[in-house]
């Protein structure tokens, strides 16, 4: 199965292996024809209308603004509906540095996103702390805080790279099981078990 998005030839992608693994995984789980077809239909819709949360902490966020304007025009892909409330958004594009004071706020935003939710780590800061990695007040990447779906390197990544990143996300969405969603919940649980910081956040939500 060739998973691709609009007008992008399959061979042009750089990491088809990864997506093919996901496809195999999906096949191995097995579903009946009806649910499978419904999944496909829904995923077709979802992957073409991914709504981002308006979330920018620093420099990378400005390139995200450029993405919204006429030249790079993310409306072509159905991503232009940037929501200000996490409850209406599909994914967070973490554009900018996450510092200690921001960590709980950021985790809360993530928790408020409605499932299915995705995270794109955009720029060196979100990936690893970037130029500020050695600072006393900077989180060394958001991977310890929330599960990340796509990494977009750069400082800042150029808008084209951001487009590529979100397109990758929409490819991932296409090969997901929507009904049941068991795999998603399990993944969340695995993540929480492995990451102490996420565990803390979980405790707060559960009220213990």
């Amino acid at each position: 199965m060739e998973v691709t998005t609009k007008s992008m030839p399959y061979e042009a992608w750089k990491d088809n292996e990864y997506i093919e693994n996901l496809v195999d995984e999906l096949r191995a789980q097995g579903t009946n024809v009806l649910v499978g077809s419904l999944d496909k239909l829904i995923n077709w819709g979802r992957s073409n209308s991914l709504w981002p949360l308006t979330f920018a902490t620093s420099c990378c966020g400005i390139e995200f603004v450029s993405l919204g304007a006429a030249r790079f025009d993310m409306a072509r892909f159905g991503w232009e509906v940037a929501r200000s409330s996490p409850r209406q958004a599909d994914f967070i594009m973490v554009a900018g540095t996450i510092v200690n004071r921001m960590v709980p706020v950021f985790r809360r935003l993530y928790d408020q996103l409605a499932e299915p939710k995705y995270v794109i780590a955009c720029g060196g800061c979100a990936i690893s702390g970037g130029p500020f990695r050695k600072s006393y007040h900077v989180a060394k990447g958001i991977e310890d805080i929330v599960p990340v779906d796509v990494f977009v390197p750069g400082c800042p990544p150029c808008p084209e790279a951001m487009i590529y990143g979100i397109m990758q996300l929409s490819r991932k969405v296409k090969v997901e099981r929507f009904f049941g969603g068991v795999n998603r919940q399990e993944k969340q649980k695995d993540f929480v078990d492995e990451h102490p910081m996420a565990k803390e956040a979980e405790k707060i939500i559960n009220g213990d």
């Binding site: 902490t57 620093s58 900018g96 540095t97 510092v99 500020f132 600072s135 006393y136 007040h137 900077v138």
Partner: peptide
């Protein structure tokens, strides 16, 4: 403030 305090001045010292 401080939601994006990145400690640049301290970093510069090293």
């Amino acid at each position: 403030m401080g939601y994006i305090h990145r400690g640049i001045e301290k970093l510069c010292e090293n």
